[in-house]
Structure formats: structure tokens, C-alpha cells
Amino acid sequence: MIEAQGLTKRYGKTLAVDDLSFSVTPGKVTGFLGPNGAGKSTTMRMILGLDNPTEGQVRIGGKRYHELHHPLRTVGALLDAKWVHPNRSARAHLAWMAKSNKISPRRVDEVLETVGLSAVANKRAGGFSLGMSQRLGIAAALLGDPEVLLFDEPVNGLDPEGILWIRKFMHRLAEEGRTVFVSSHLLSEMALTASELVVIGKGKLISQSSTDDFVARASENSVKVRSPQLDVLRDALTRASATVAPADDGVVVSGLDIAKIGEIAMENGVVLHELSPQRGSLEQAFMQITGDAVEYHADLEAEAQRALAPTAN
């Protein structure tokens, strides 16, 4: 159980995390979703007591992180897989962590076995691939058999096999009744991994809901309509409180069911040339929701034009 209340972090003039309150419950995977630079990692560091909040607080099972006795036995975390001394072996890395929280040395071999690194346990961690480093990071998180697990962008840079492995792994941890909090900037990934979502943008909470609700809201369908009597139809739809936006040779209607639009057309005796659902991708919809809250905007259109320009010649 993680509870954040009014969590705020200010770096000079920038407000990295702004009055953030949310809770993460045990027994399921909770996704922590937001664009890059939204404040996810900062929040995770504050949960672990690495960064001090400017205001507000975060509690784990009712306690602040520094009040936990042998914290690795309560909270396991993978914030950055590269946080390992490159000349230290995987086993030595886990050995000192185990020692620090009075965890039995046998547990080191157990977690190495769990993540499949037993064969390279005595190799220096600097020579590990990203996937192997990620596994070592997970082994470190699991070391104290903790109730609460935090993962920051665990699938970043992994191959499909690695992604699938991590996804299954998180489900297993949640099924064992643990609290699993995992951040990502990809809604498509979170839709497959998490059953609850905490969504933030520019450090502010955008929503906390079940993933299904969020996805339904994010991919709210719009309908393309073409008709020779567009003016009549537009008035009728607007009266039915739909949003009507002009498109190439027709209009795009949102906020109304596709069947309802057909019925309204019928009632008004309007001929329809096209009535088709427009399904934006999940990512597009997510970008719409967090659109205002993206810290670093890239002009994607212009970027695409520029990329295409040489091939056009």
C-alpha cells in the first residue's frame, strides 16, 4: 500500500511534481503513466526517500520510508538498471545489499535463479546486456521478498521476449498479493500490464482509475459522416449535444453513439453517404489527454515533413 498526499517537488523554478495525491493498493499491478518528463521518476525517488519532497508526503503501509526497519524487506525497487558498479559481480552486488538488511546469503542465489542469471552470477555486471542488467535489477528488488515493488520504465529498451517476461512477472507478483507500482510512458504497454492506472502530466494528477475505464475514455470513438445535406445534419447533431468538427469532405462527430447519429439522420430525413467509426490509436488518444501536459513539445508534423522531403525529390 502506497499513499501519496499533496506530494510536491520543486527544482528552482520548475515544479517537477505538483500537489500529487494517489494511492496504490495491493494485489494488482498499478501503472504510473505519463509522458517523458512528467515527474514519474522524481515521484518514485520521493517514495524511496532518495529525494526530499518540497511539500506533502508519501507513506508505505502507513510509514515513511526512513521509518522502515530493514527497508529492503518491505520495499523492493528497480529505478535504473545501470545503478551497479561495472566491476562488481552480480553476486557481490546482491551480497552487500542482502548483508545490509540482514537477509540470508542463500536468498542471493534464489533470486539469481528466479531471474535466470545463475550462470553469470560471478561475471562483472559492467559486461551485462541491457536485458541482463534489467534482470539483475529485478533480482535486487526481489531480494528482501518485499510487500511493495516499484519499477521505473522496466521494459525500456528490451526486446519483445524480455518485455513479455517482465509483463508476466509483474502479474505473478501481483497475484501473490503484493503491491506492484510500475511506471511507463507507453499506454499500449500499460494496457497490457496494469489493471489500475495513475496518470500524470507535468507533475499533476490527470486521473486515477481502472485501466479499462481510462482506455475507454482515451479511445472514445468519433464518427465520420458525409452527406449532401450536411448543414441540416450539423444543426440536428449539435442540438443533440454532439461535437461536430469539419473534416476533408464531411464532418467528424464525437460524443454520440454511431447508432444514435444514424437515427438522428433518419429523423431529419438526411441522406448519408458515409457513416464510419474513426478509431484513433490508443497512443494518439493518450497524447490528446496529456497533450497540454507534455513538458517538451516536439513539432511532430514539421518533423515528419522534413523527414519526407528528401525522398520527394
Binding site: 532518495l50 527497508p71 545503478w83 551497479v84
Partner: peptide
């Protein structure tokens, strides 16, 4: 090197004092 490789964070995570 602990700061360079981020292990200082792992250390403070394991030993908050």
C-alpha cells in the same frame, strides 16, 4: 564511483540512515 554509478542511491535505499 558510488555517485558515478548510482550505487549510492541503492545504498541509501538499503540504509536510509
Amino acid at each position: 564511483t558510488e555517485y558515478r554509478f548510482g550505487t549510492i542511491r541503492t545504498t541509501f535505499q538499503a540504509i536510509p540512515n
